Structures are given as structure tokens and as C-alpha cells.
Computed example of a mutant assay.
Amino acid sequence: MTEHAAEAGWWYDGGVGTVTVARDATARFLRGSAGTDPDVDTDTALLVVSELVTNAVKHAPGPLRLELARSDATLVISVLDGSTAGPVLRPPDPERVGGHGMEIVTALCRYVVTEPAPCGKRVTAVLVAPELAMRAPAQRG
């Protein structure tokens, strides 16, 4: 990770309860790194973490790493897992049950990018404070 005001990372085994523990760690991180700058929305951050970690647990069995980095009014959320297959962004379909995770993540984040990692891939999503999000157009990568 690059230089940020606050950074943290955790390894998880990818088993039962991983999503809950990752959300709890994220909530603690956000409380502990809050500053005077506009803050990203905690509920939005927790939803993005839930979706990215759920994808890793479902589609890349084994250990995964959640990394968070905060600077100014930006939160960078990265999930590393052991699969080389990238997440699938499906077209919107209100009739489909499930499979909306990446649709949700890309709708909420400034940008989302998947990159190869030494033992799989890294999916990174960037959230900005609502006040700043209205000032610049979103980018998808």
C-alpha cells in the first residue's frame, strides 16, 4: 500500500464468519482513523467490504487479505485472494437472485480495479466522501 494517513490489513482463513469479522475490523478502523476531513460513509464502506470479501470467500477458497488505507476523504479497500479469475460484473437484472455484488461495488465506488497478485489477484475499490464525490465524475477501471 502507498502512504496514507492510516493503514491496516488482516489475513483471514476464508471460513465461516470471515465476512462478519472483516466488517467488524473495518468498523473499528474507520472509528480509529476518523479525522476532521469529510468522512466516507461507514455503511457504504461496510457494504463494499462485505461484497468484496464475500466474493473472495465464495470464489477463491482459502486465505484472503483485507487491506484498508485512508487519506483525506478517501478510503481504499483491497481484497487479495488466491484465485486468478477476476470478479464478474454482470448487467443489471432485477429478476436475478444473487450475483449483484460487483454491480453494487462499482455503483458505490469512485473506481474498482482488479490486478494480478503474486498468488492470485487484488481487487481494489476506492470510496470518497459524499461531499467530494459530487465534485468530480466517477472512473471505472
Rank of each mutant, 00 (worst) to 15 (best):
61 P>Y: 04
130 P>T: 03
11 W>S: 14
60 A>P: 08
95 E>M: 03
99 G>P: 09
71 S>K: 10
5 A>R: 07
65 R>F: 10
113 V>K: 00
138 A>N: 04
38 P>E: 00
92 P>N: 08
50 S>F: 05
56 A>S: 08
130 P>V: 09
129 A>P: 00
33 S>H: 12
42 T>C: 03
103 E>H: 04
49 V>C: 06
53 V>F: 06
67 E>S: 14
85 A>L: 08
83 S>A: 13
72 D>Y: 15
34 A>T: 15
42 T>E: 04
23 R>Q: 12
48 V>F: 02
108 L>N: 00
80 L>T: 12
15 G>D: 14
68 L>I: 15
1 M>E: 13
33 S>I: 12
77 I>A: 07
126 V>A: 10
28 R>W: 13
136 A>I: 06
119 C>G: 07
113 V>P: 00
21 V>S: 10
96 R>F: 05
116 P>V: 11
60 A>K: 03
106 T>Y: 10
136 A>R: 12
53 V>K: 03
71 S>N: 13
4 H>V: 15
76 V>R: 02
127 L>N: 05
121 K>Y: 06
25 A>V: 11
128 V>N: 03
126 V>N: 02
74 T>C: 02
10 W>D: 11
34 A>S: 12
95 E>R: 05
89 L>R: 06
101 G>W: 03
87 P>F: 11
37 D>T: 14
75 L>M: 11
17 G>I: 07
82 G>E: 12
20 T>F: 10
73 A>S: 11
116 P>K: 05
87 P>L: 13
133 A>E: 12
99 G>Q: 10
27 A>C: 15
106 T>P: 01
16 V>D: 15
51 E>S: 09
94 P>S: 09
27 A>K: 14
25 A>D: 11
55 N>Y: 04
115 E>N: 04
111 Y>V: 01
81 D>S: 08
34 A>M: 15
100 H>A: 14
136 A>Y: 05
122 R>L: 11
94 P>C: 05
44 T>R: 00
17 G>S: 07
48 V>H: 00
141 G>W: 01
101 G>L: 13
89 L>A: 03
18 T>S: 13
13 D>R: 08
135 R>G: 04
67 E>T: 14
56 A>T: 03
37 D>N: 10
37 D>Q: 13
109 C>R: 00
14 G>K: 01
16 V>G: 12
131 E>D: 10
130 P>I: 06
43 D>P: 01
43 D>F: 02
48 V>S: 10
31 R>I: 14
36 T>W: 10
37 D>I: 07
4 H>T: 12
28 R>Q: 15
92 P>H: 08
39 D>Q: 14
80 L>K: 08
50 S>P: 01
66 L>N: 02
60 A>S: 11
8 A>I: 01
53 V>I: 06
